Computed example of a mutant assay.
Amino acid sequence: MHHLAPYQAGLWLAEYLNIRCQLCAVYRSTPQSKLSPTQSLLRPSLSDQHSSFTKIIEQFHQRFSSGLLCTSCHNSITWLPKPFEVDITAGRTLTIRAATYYDYPIRQAIRAFKHHEDMTKLPLLLHVLRQLPRPHGCHHDNSVIVAMPTTDERLIKRGFDPVSILAAHLSKHWDIPLWKGVKRIDNTVSQQGLTRAERLSNLDNAFTLSAPAAVKRLILFDDVATTGASLQALARTLSNDPSISSNNKYHLWAYALAHGSQS
């Protein structure tokens, strides 16, 4: 989890020592366990493991964790919009689920983190990320997370890979490892501002596999799924892997931090 090291100290300060809401900075933040029942269940409970040690750790966490958002700000955000589907092969679709919409204040936070490496926005984005329910039946022994890859040119230009950082935190939260068997080989332009047809055309032959995955359950992840074109292209590449027999295809899920806009 070397992705987490440069950012962990700031996250600890935000989540455990800062008692103010990360969004409004007015009200006291609320621990995850005190939020609505739906959201609070999405964070794995250490006490579920039924050992005295983990129960003590859980009690310690509940006592000292102040959370990231106040109840009002948390409830002002629309969580878990309806999933949508995209076609990947004949007779096969990919369901894409997002934690929230790409609206204010999440849109501004994503842009600041993604384009300016503003680490003050990362705690809010991780709060959003934690709303995603882990796919049913997926765990660390039978599944991997595939973060949307970037090109070497973009990585050099930006200086860091925001999607891989978010995916590393999702990996830690779900206890499912990352898999880096897909490379992005295109020199396409940014997807922003393109129509759906232009996005798909822009992503032709954008990905290549370096090796087959050791497991058959692959969870695709991107930061923003506007039309789902990037996740669709990635899923098509995995579905067309010539090293996988037709009766032994990958099982694919797709998740994003944010989807489109509800306006």
Results as ranks from 00 to 15, higher is better:
residue 167 A to S: 14
residue 153 E to G: 09
residue 149 P to F: 05
residue 152 D to T: 10
residue 164 S to T: 13
residue 145 I to F: 12
residue 159 G to M: 14
residue 159 G to V: 14
residue 169 H to C: 01
residue 145 I to C: 06
residue 167 A to N: 14
residue 157 K to H: 09
residue 144 V to R: 04
residue 146 V to C: 13
residue 165 I to Y: 14
residue 164 S to V: 13
residue 151 T to R: 00
residue 156 I to V: 09
residue 168 A to K: 08
residue 171 S to H: 04
residue 158 R to C: 00
residue 146 V to N: 05
residue 148 M to V: 12
residue 155 L to K: 01
residue 155 L to N: 03
residue 158 R to D: 01
residue 170 L to D: 00
residue 162 P to F: 06
residue 152 D to S: 08
residue 145 I to N: 00
residue 174 W to T: 04
residue 163 V to Q: 14
residue 146 V to S: 02
residue 145 I to T: 02
residue 149 P to K: 01
residue 156 I to P: 03
residue 157 K to L: 01
residue 156 I to D: 07
residue 157 K to G: 00
residue 147 A to K: 06
residue 155 L to P: 00
residue 172 K to M: 13
residue 155 L to V: 03
residue 158 R to K: 11
residue 171 S to R: 02
residue 166 L to A: 07
residue 156 I to L: 11
residue 158 R to T: 01
residue 170 L to M: 05
residue 172 K to D: 07
residue 163 V to G: 06
residue 157 K to D: 01
residue 170 L to W: 05
residue 173 H to Q: 13
residue 149 P to L: 02
residue 166 L to C: 10
residue 165 I to W: 11
residue 154 R to V: 01
residue 167 A to G: 11
residue 148 M to G: 06
residue 166 L to E: 05
residue 148 M to A: 13
residue 154 R to Y: 00
residue 151 T to Y: 01
residue 162 P to C: 10
residue 172 K to S: 10
residue 147 A to L: 08
residue 158 R to Q: 03
residue 165 I to V: 14
residue 168 A to M: 11
residue 171 S to V: 02
residue 170 L to N: 04
residue 168 A to T: 11
residue 161 D to P: 04
residue 173 H to D: 09
residue 161 D to K: 00
residue 166 L to K: 15
residue 164 S to P: 06
residue 164 S to K: 15
residue 144 V to I: 15
residue 147 A to P: 15
residue 163 V to C: 15
residue 169 H to Q: 12
residue 149 P to Q: 01
residue 148 M to F: 03
residue 160 F to C: 08
residue 161 D to N: 14
residue 157 K to V: 00
residue 153 E to S: 09
residue 164 S to Y: 14
residue 160 F to I: 04
residue 171 S to D: 02
residue 151 T to Q: 04
residue 170 L to G: 04
residue 166 L to H: 11
residue 144 V to W: 01
residue 167 A to Q: 08
residue 169 H to R: 10
residue 171 S to F: 02
residue 144 V to F: 04
residue 171 S to I: 05
residue 168 A to V: 07
residue 173 H to S: 07
residue 168 A to R: 13
residue 165 I to N: 12
residue 162 P to H: 15
residue 162 P to N: 13
residue 159 G to Q: 14
residue 171 S to E: 03
residue 153 E to M: 07
residue 162 P to V: 05
residue 158 R to F: 00
residue 163 V to Y: 03
residue 152 D to G: 09
residue 152 D to E: 08
residue 159 G to F: 07
residue 151 T to N: 04
residue 169 H to G: 04
residue 149 P to M: 04
residue 146 V to F: 12
residue 167 A to R: 09
residue 146 V to W: 07
residue 164 S to H: 13
residue 166 L to D: 08
residue 164 S to D: 13
residue 170 L to S: 04
residue 167 A to L: 10
residue 161 D to Q: 07
residue 151 T to S: 15
residue 144 V to E: 02
residue 155 L to S: 09
residue 168 A to E: 09
residue 151 T to H: 03
residue 152 D to Y: 11
residue 168 A to S: 15
residue 167 A to M: 11
residue 167 A to P: 15
residue 163 V to N: 14
residue 173 H to G: 05
residue 154 R to C: 03
residue 154 R to I: 01
residue 149 P to E: 05
residue 149 P to R: 01
residue 163 V to S: 11
residue 159 G to L: 11
residue 162 P to L: 14
residue 153 E to F: 13
residue 168 A to D: 10
residue 145 I to H: 05
residue 153 E to W: 08
residue 172 K to L: 11
residue 162 P to K: 11
residue 169 H to F: 15
residue 163 V to R: 08
residue 169 H to M: 07
residue 147 A to S: 15
residue 144 V to K: 03
residue 147 A to D: 10
residue 163 V to A: 13
residue 162 P to I: 10
